[in-house]
């Protein structure tokens, strides 16, 4: 990763009539970085991407790719990016192979051996007409074209929603390869495990606001580890200590417990546990799921309290 900024949005806003789809979106993508853009359906992921692609015009704020305005200089920006939409619609009368070549030609690229390798790898029958393809196969067409396009920035909008697990692995493998070659990638998803596996940085969007940005590690201080423990002596004191939540004992002697712990309190908690002689201990780092749920729950609770 390097300091060169490939993509940056500042206070991006977009309204459709009275509906404010984007309220405040700040994103930064560096060279060689994979930025995961996550949020529930309808949070504004696709709208943000469509603004970045110059398909729709921002109502406020700014968005720049390669330092160029995404709306005014869209053609120049598009020369060096490749995009795969979430729902791929392709001209029904073209075959998959014709579509791939068309997309390559339009980006000034050629059908190379890499293209053939990708077709083989994804096991796509390119002689079939697009109208006979399933959603997953249409997605493969777009992915093959994108992966065999040599550009600096790749944008994927929920790219694996139609792929089976095998093809998902192929996809992840190619993302890793792009990253290795110093390419920048923006990947939106609501599948959290996907983002967790592939991304360096994560931006969380909710109701048109980016509410958190940072590396996965830097976000973990905000989250709680899940701890499952069995000790020799009873763990009653856990109920009194700070930073322990959702405590559950699973035996009457109160020696087997499961709870979530604040990351910054983990030291105190461990001291207490070792005093009770640990027989078995398992801690699980927070998944994005937890992170996600916590953010959204707390925001909803706040709302509820208002």
């Amino acid at each position: 990763m390097d300091d060169e900024i490939i993509l940056e949005t500042k206070n991006l806003k977009k309204s459709f009539g009275k509906f404010q789809a984007l309220r405040n979106v700040n994103l930064k993508l560096h060279k060689g970085e994979v930025l995961g853009f996550i949020g529930p359906n309808g949070a504004g992921k696709s709208t943000t991407i469509r603004v970045i692609l110059g398909l729709i015009k921002a109502t406020g704020g700014s968005a720049a790719v390669f330092g160029k305005d995404v709306w005014k200089d869209s053609v120049a920006v598009h020369k060096n990016l490749s995009y795969v939409p979430g729902d791929v619609y392709l001209w029904p009368n073209l075959t998959g192979g014709q579509t791939i070549d068309l997309l390559l030609h339009m980006s000034g690229q050629k059908h190379t051996t890499k293209t053939d390798d990708l077709i083989k790898e994804f096991k796509l029958d390119t002689s079939k007409k697009n109208r006979t393809y399933s959603k997953g196969n249409r997605q493969k067409v777009a992915l093959i074209a994108a992966f065999s396009t040599a550009v600096s920035l790749y944008i994927f909008d929920e790219p694996t929603s139609g792929l089976d697990p095998l093809n998902e692995v192929i996809f992840q493998h190619h993302i890793a390869e792009l990253k290795k070659n110093g390419k920048s990638i923006l990947l939106s998803s609501h599948i959290l495990s996907e983002v967790e596996k592939m991304c360096d940085t994560i931006a969380i969007i909710r109701e048109g606001n980016v509410i958190e940005t940072g590396s996965l590690e830097s976000m973990q201080h905000l989250t709680r580890n899940t701890v499952a423990v069995r000790t020799k002596e009873p763990l009653d004191e856990l109920q009194k200590i700070d930073g322990v939540y959702q405590l559950k004992f699973s035996d009457s002697a109160r020696t087997t417990a499961e709870f979530s712990a604040d990351s910054d309190q983990i030291g105190n908690i461990m001291t207490l546990l070792s005093a009770k002689i640990i027989l078995q201990l398992k801690t699980t780092p927070p998944t994005l799921e937890d992170l996600f749920l916590r953010y959204y729950q707390s925001a909803d609770e706040q709302k509820g309290g208002e």
């Binding site: 001209w91 009368n93 014709q98 339009m106 007409k129 109208r131």
Partner: peptide, 22 residues
């Protein structure tokens, strides 16, 4: 029935040729 077709295309180069093809 919809028949299959060619696996590659030299002809399709942009929006104009695509429109013609369609």
């Amino acid at each position: 029935q919809v028949r299959g077709g060619k696996r590659t295309s030299r002809f399709l180069r942009g929006s104009g040729t695509l429109l013609f093809w369609n």
